[in-house]
């Protein structure tokens, strides 16, 4: 068997793909969070950041395509493995008590699918700025600031002032947090960077990191719902 078969056909190979793509997506999630948190620095910072990204297509498009590939591979490997895993137990137990496994570890697929749905919504909401799904009646494309840049600050605040949208966002972030609490430590396991010495640190560290990410992301809609940036909207 050659390397392609070892990676794309075997169960372990697919776990590798899952882990490596998961790692890239995790790094993106961290980077994206840091970028987003600039909202707390005010309109100038976040709008400048947005403008910087959008005015450099040679940077942003490779990144977008890369991420898309990662997401595709992550989902592909998950789907393939899940089909194989189902086939591995054709007759279910009548009574099944999962011992020693966390809730997160058993809900990776379901959680992942909901997160994928969220990502689609999130892209339509803030990236493609489809007016029909932002439930504010306003078109985010029209938001510009004094320097004629796209007013991202206003878009975020407007978008998140809708409690339903924020609620879905918060729910998705909690699922992402659950997904990462297991996914990050599993990533180390799948790549083989774990042993009994590091295992407790990695497992606890993964939960901690997931928690920080949840706090980081959810702080934005929560703050907005509590009134942050309401002056801009008015």
């Amino acid at each position: 068997m050659n390397i392609i078969a070892y990676l794309f056909k075997s169960s372990l190979g697919k776990k590798y793909i899952m882990a490596v793509t998961g790692c890239c997506l995790f790094l993106f999630v961290v980077g994206h969070m840091v970028g987003n948190l600039q909202v707390f620095l005010g309109p100038e910072a976040i709008n400048r950041y947005g403008h910087f990204l959008q005015s450099n297509p040679e940077l942003i498009w490779p990144a977008r395509l890369g991420l898309l590939t990662m997401v595709a591979l992550h989902i592909w490997s998950a789907a393939r493995l899940s089909v194989e895993n189902r086939a591995a137990r054709p007759v279910a137990y009548q009574t099944y008590k999962p011992m020693g496994s966390s809730y997160a570890s058993r809900t990776m697929l379901m959680g992942g699918l909901i997160i994928a749905t969220f990502i689609i919504y999130h892209l339509l909401h803030f990236t493609f700025q489809v007016q029909a799904i932002n439930f504010t009646g306003q078109n985010f494309v029209d938001f510009t600031d004094a320097e004629k840049r796209h007013d991202i600050f206003k878009m975020i605040v407007t978008g998140f002032r809708n409690p339903l949208v924020s609620g879905f966002y918060l729910l998705s972030m909690s699922l992402l947090c659950l997904h990462l609490s297991h996914g990050v430590s599993s990533m180390f396991q799948s790549i083989g960077w774990k042993n009994d010495t590091y295992r407790p640190i990695i497992d606890k560290g993964a939960c901690l990191v997931a928690g920080v990410i949840f706090l980081g992301y959810s702080s934005i809609p929560v703050a907005i719902l509590l009134g942050f940036g309401k002056d801009v909207v008015k």
């Binding site: 169960s11 372990l12 697919k14 776990k15 590798y16 493995l81 194989e84 895993n85 086939a87 591995a88 137990r89 999962p98 011992m99 020693g100 496994s101 966390s102 570890s105 058993r106 990776m108 297991h182 430590s185 599993s186 180390f188 396991q189 799948s190 790549i191 083989g192 960077w193 774990k194 042993n195 009994d196 295992r199």
Partner: peptide, 27 residues
């Protein structure tokens, strides 16, 4: 099937084989 690192294997193993050996295999 494949390993989703849930750890239930380790929990029921009558010889308490550690999940960390799976990482060694993966490596």
């Amino acid at each position: 099937g494949s390993c989703t690192v849930t750890g239930s294997c380790e929990a029921v193993c009558p010889k308490e084989i550690s999940l960390s050996f799976i990482a060694k295999l993966n490596r």
